[in-house]
Structures are given as C-alpha cells and as structure tokens.
Nucleic acid binder design. Sequence first.
DNA 1: ACCGTATCATTAACATGTTAAATAAATAAA
DNA 2: TTTATTTATTTAACATGTTAATGATACGGT
Lengths: 159, 159
Amino acid sequence: MTDRAATKPKIPQDALLPRNTRRSLPIALLRAREALMSHFRPMLAEHDITEQQWRVIRILAEAGTVDASDMADRAFILAPSLTRIIRSLEERGIIDKAKDDNDGRRVLLKITPAGLAIIEEVAPESRLIYDRLEKRFGRERIELLLDLLDEVAAFNGND
Amino acid sequence: MTDRAATKPKIPQDALLPRNTRRSLPIALLRAREALMSHFRPMLAEHDITEQQWRVIRILAEAGTVDASDMADRAFILAPSLTRIIRSLEERGIIDKAKDDNDGRRVLLKITPAGLAIIEEVAPESRLIYDRLEKRFGRERIELLLDLLDEVAAFNGND
DNA sequence: ACCGTATCATTAACATGTTAAATAAATAAA
DNA sequence: TTTATTTATTTAACATGTTAATGATACGGT
C-alpha cells in the first residue's frame, strides 16, 4: 500500500514459516467478525451495553430463565467473564439473579423489564443491519458460511 | 441437552427479536476461531507467548522490519494493545524497537535471534495442525471459507 | 453418616479489547 | 516562518479473555 513497506525478510519464504498472514484462517475470522461488530457496537454503546452484555440479555429474552453454566455455553462467554457481566448487569437492574433452590451451586438469571426495554430499542436496528447483510450476500451464502463455520468449530485436531 | 433447560421465554418468538443465537454469525465466527486457537494456545503457552504476540513475531519473521502502524494493520491488533505487546516483547528480548530516522513518530520493529528461535520451534507444530485441518476439510473448502470471510470483512453496511 | 470426588461459581492475576484523551512529530496553510 | 491541522504512538480507564486456584455444594460409594 504505502512506500514504507516492510523490508529485509529475516527468513526465506520457505516451508519453515507458517502460511502467510494474509490467508490465515484465525485472522480472517477476526476480521470478518470485527467488520460485523463495528456496525453493532455504536448502537449498543448508546445504551451503555457491551457486545457480550447484549448477548446475555438477548439470550434471556429468547429463553426466559437460564442458569449461568447454560448461559456461558450459549453466549460463548467464559465463566470468569460471565461472573463479572452478571454482577454489572444486576447492579444496573437489567437482569435478576437468584440461587437455584434445587441446586445451591447454580445461579439462575432472568431479564427485568428494564432489560426488555433495551432489547426492544436495539432489536429493530440490529435486524436492519442483518437484513442489509443478507440482501448483500444472499441467504444461501450466509447459510453456507454458517455451515462451514460450524464444521470448523467441530474441528478437534484428532484427525 | 440437559433437563435444566431454559424455561418461560419472556418474549414470543416473533419478529421483534434478533435472529436466533444458534445461527448468529458473530457468535459462529467466535466459535470457529476458538476451536482453532484451542489447538494453538497450549503450544504457544509452552514458550510463554500469547496468540497476539505470536502474530507479531511471525509477521516480523515474514516481512523483516515493520513499523507499528503497519503491524497493527497486518496483525489486526489495536494500537493500544500493540503498544503493550511491543513493550513486553522488547523487555523479553524477542523483538527490537527503534525510532524511524525519517519520521520521528514512527516505531520500527524487528525480530531478534531469540525471536527467530521461537519461530523455529513453534512453526513446525503449527504447520502440522494446519495440515490436519486441510486434510479434514480439503484445500478448496478452506479457500472458499477464506473468500467468504473476506467478503464479510469488506461489508460496510452502506447500501 | 462419612469420605472422596466431581461440578458450579467465584476470585485472582495478567493480557488484550475498546474508546477517549494526551503527547509528539510531521505537514499544510497563512 | 509561524500557526493550525493531521498523523503516529502512547496513556488512561474500564470490560473481557485466559488460566489457575479457591470455596461451596452435590453426589457416589462405603
């Protein structure tokens, strides 16, 4: 791009190096994700909600009462992060937290009316962005991408 | 999966909600990425290298001297994160840092022999994992996936 | 009932993500 | 040349990612 391009590769472009960064799957996944989230984040920021917090309250709106482990699975958030997110959302009155009577270890989560209000404000705009994406790529290509991603997600390395 | 499934959805499954979490593109991208990185992280951890640090030294091995802005673009790391990573890698003698004589604002990065040593130890194992992935999915499907991801990365939401 | 073990949630410690603001150097404009 | 504006990097502040350790509860076998 610019004339300050890199100089003097330290290693010949041979088999020793990992594949070129430009076609690196992990980085490509990052870039694609960021391209999407850059559209959603500003909209969530207006409600002082992070992307992860949005995932949590959205799942609660979808599913009703969910315990923390279940939430961690669905929202793909690690337990320590979820602990902090739950604390923050509860302090702000966006979700309710209660101990499971049948299993004292579990924490049950539920969205509050205030949380629902956020959902109702954000969801239409969110849907608009997805619709634009779908119109641009076509439903089938998105489904194809989702299928490929699911396959990669199932990759466990044991040939 | 379990019998502690969620109960009492708070919102009817209608048009108000965003699309179901199970087919959410951002989360699918996260899951796929994590499935890959879970194989690489332990291997990097043995050298006390994070995934992002690996990206930095790998790019330096590929390209020689690179300035910080260029690195941020290539490794897809935000400037503030890169500042911390550079500091850490330099303190550990894995990279060298120097001011650009032609532009006092720029920071030039270069890998050290110690850094190259890490590359040489990690690269073969890294390549092995990629080869397994390629054997599992086939080169064409991976290329297809990369192409789709590039397209999503180019999505700007306008029109 | 007791013990050992497994599971769930939290805490701790450190690295990175994210946005905004500050600093410093280069560049354009007056 | 002096000023104003851009550009590159850093700092700050807070949220999350990541791994390991801890505390608490549940559960199995004895």
